[in-house]
Design a protein around this nucleic acid. Structure first.
Lengths: 206, 206
DNA sequence: CCTTTAGTGATACGAGCGTATCATCAAGGC
DNA sequence: GCCTTGATGATACGCTCGTATCACTAAAGG
């Protein structure tokens, strides 16, 4: 066999070119030709490694999920010792588009998310319901914090986890839509989180 | 002048055909030809009333906003006497995709919202930042409920209004994405609203 | 009556898209 | 040392899109 090039590296190179386009010009302008130009390769090469555009999208989404989970765990680690509280804070703030990297990730992710609306069949062909895992993870840690007395007893962990995730997604959309900046969104999220944690302490019976 | 047809009615007929497509097959498949077919007219007629597609989109968005505000006020009215509490509840639950009509409206609205991501210049050419007005309205009524003792004093009306709106948008997206159904989303929203209102009463100092 | 003009229809154009085709090149196995 | 086969490049095809063009109709005004 000739040309001993690393296939996986090439696929990554192309896949991340698509992500770069998705996070700047939007996923809808990530055409095969644009991706090829962004990756610095020929159109034929993109077709060679990904027989169809759908395959390319799926691979790129996998790379994106990889980057996202890495960012989330890094954000948790940065908050010091791993507690239920740091996991919840770290997870949600990592997803929120506050700095350049998270804006990039959120923009790309939103592109794929909206793609599901327009092409539901494609979403069915591949499993990948990422947020569901996050939600149960959050619910678990909320319940744990509840047992530790950091969260009021009458809080429903499942409902609250879903609410926090939906809140964060909604805030992210508003940031991307230019309605507010990342700092303002973070303030809103932290207000809600602060109200949830230590609810017993900060809420006197006045 | 010949053919005494009502121009505004014709424009509405075409604009609502676009909305119908946007809420079923998605806004991206609302091409000029599809809209013409859906409205039961020729392509030329669509071009006649809307010189460009952008004009058609803008007009359709105006119709959609009209329908949305009407639904919101109807939802508030249905909750009985108009109080700050019913305004907040009515507004948010009206936006949430729980029944067939709200699913239609939310789907169409989401289509336009995602269009802003891909075509930011178009959003700049026309003002129309609908949610900002809603947010200040909610903040006003939260502050009023606070004065009436229905909401805890340490709640920040502006931050909370933004959070509720973002939460509702996020929940709406999750419903449209098939992550949960409208009833589940409503449960999550009502849990949060119930926790906000009567915070003093339902939160014993235990 | 017939001219003007708003309304309507069928069709064409150029661009961009995903995908397919054809030819070429380089490296190992016999 | 050729020949098989994986890797690469240039180009073409068929489709759909928004938009433009050309011709035709019918009703009001002089």
């Amino acid at each position: 066999m000739p040309k001993r090039v690393d296939h996986e590296q090439r696929r990554r190179q192309i896949g991340e070119a698509l992500l770069r386009i998705a996070s700047t010009r939007g996923l809808q302008s990530a055409t095969m030709r644009e991706v090829a130009a962004e990756a610095g390769v020929s159109l034929r090469l993109v077709q060679y490694y990904f027989h169809t555009k759908e395959q390319l999208l799926v691979a790129a989404l996998a790379y994106l999920a990889e980057q996202l989970t890495e960012r989330v765990s890094a954000s948790i680690r940065a908050l010091g010792p791993v507690t239920s509280r740091t996991v919840v804070y770290g997870t949600l703030t990592a997803v929120l588009p506050t700095d350049e990297e998270s804006v990039r990730l959120t923009r790309a992710y939103t592109g794929f998310y909206t793609l599901v609306f327009s092409e539901p069949e494609m979403a069915l062909r591949h499993g990948a319901v990422y947020p569901d895992k996050l939600e149960s993870l959050l619910a678990k840690h909320i319940a744990a914090a509840q047992e530790a007395g950091e969260i009021a007893d009458d809080v429903d962990p499942a409902l609250t986890a879903a609410a926090l995730l939906a809140l964060t997604n909604g805030l992210g959309s508003s940031v991307l839509g230019g309605q507010r900046d990342g700092a303002a969104a973070l303030r809103i999220l932290e207000d809600q989180l602060g109200r949830l944690f230590h609810a017993r302490l900060s809420r006197p019976p006045t």
